[in-house]
Amino acid sequence: MSFIWAIIAGLIIGLIARAVLPGRQNIPIWLTIILGVIGAIVGNLIASALGVRDTGGFDWIRHILQIAAAIVLVAIVAPLWAKRVSR
């Protein structure tokens, strides 16, 4: 069941990352999900290193770090994907 939640969280985080970035990112939805999942994992690692992974209440800092990591990933991968597809 946690695998399904990881996919759902990856989709949401990936879509938020794509919405925050200016311009259009021509990447498929499956790549958005993968980048969102990786962003969530990287964000969790950073939050753990900072000591803010588990707090009382809603973990705003952890989620912001997850989205920020996904934004960086989408910003790096989207141009590479566009070059790959345009060949």
Rank of each mutant, 00 (worst) to 15 (best):
12 I>R: 01
49 A>K: 14
55 T>C: 02
23 G>V: 11
40 A>Y: 06
13 I>Y: 00
40 A>T: 12
35 L>W: 03
30 W>F: 14
31 L>R: 04
46 I>N: 03
81 W>P: 02
24 R>A: 12
64 I>L: 08
19 A>E: 13
27 I>V: 07
84 R>T: 14
19 A>C: 09
40 A>P: 01
29 I>Y: 08
45 L>G: 11
10 G>S: 00
65 L>Y: 03
84 R>C: 14
41 I>Y: 13
18 R>H: 12
72 V>P: 06
19 A>K: 13
84 R>G: 15
62 R>S: 10
39 G>V: 00
43 G>E: 00
31 L>W: 07
58 F>Y: 05
87 R>D: 10
52 V>W: 02
24 R>W: 13
50 L>C: 12
67 I>C: 05
7 I>H: 02
79 P>Y: 05
62 R>L: 08
40 A>Q: 11
31 L>V: 07
12 I>K: 03
19 A>F: 07
31 L>G: 10
43 G>M: 06
55 T>D: 01
3 F>D: 11
40 A>W: 06
65 L>A: 04
26 N>K: 15
19 A>Q: 10
52 V>K: 00
8 I>N: 02
14 G>R: 00
75 A>M: 09
1 M>T: 11
21 L>F: 10
52 V>M: 09
53 R>S: 12
27 I>K: 04
36 G>D: 04
35 L>T: 04
39 G>D: 08
80 L>G: 09
29 I>S: 10
47 A>N: 02
3 F>L: 14
60 W>C: 02
33 I>G: 01
79 P>I: 08
27 I>L: 10
9 A>N: 13
40 A>V: 01
44 N>A: 04
64 I>F: 13
80 L>K: 14
65 L>F: 08
83 K>T: 15
64 I>D: 07
55 T>N: 11
34 I>K: 05
9 A>C: 06
15 L>I: 08
78 A>H: 11
3 F>Y: 15
48 S>L: 08
87 R>N: 14
86 S>W: 15
67 I>N: 09
4 I>W: 14
62 R>V: 07
40 A>G: 10
31 L>S: 06
38 I>R: 00
77 V>H: 05
16 I>E: 12
48 S>P: 01
35 L>S: 00
42 V>K: 01
40 A>F: 03
60 W>K: 00
71 I>H: 06
64 I>A: 15
86 S>T: 13
19 A>M: 11
14 G>Q: 02
59 D>T: 12
69 A>I: 08
69 A>W: 04
11 L>C: 06
23 G>H: 07
59 D>S: 13
38 I>K: 00
7 I>Y: 01
62 R>T: 06
46 I>C: 00
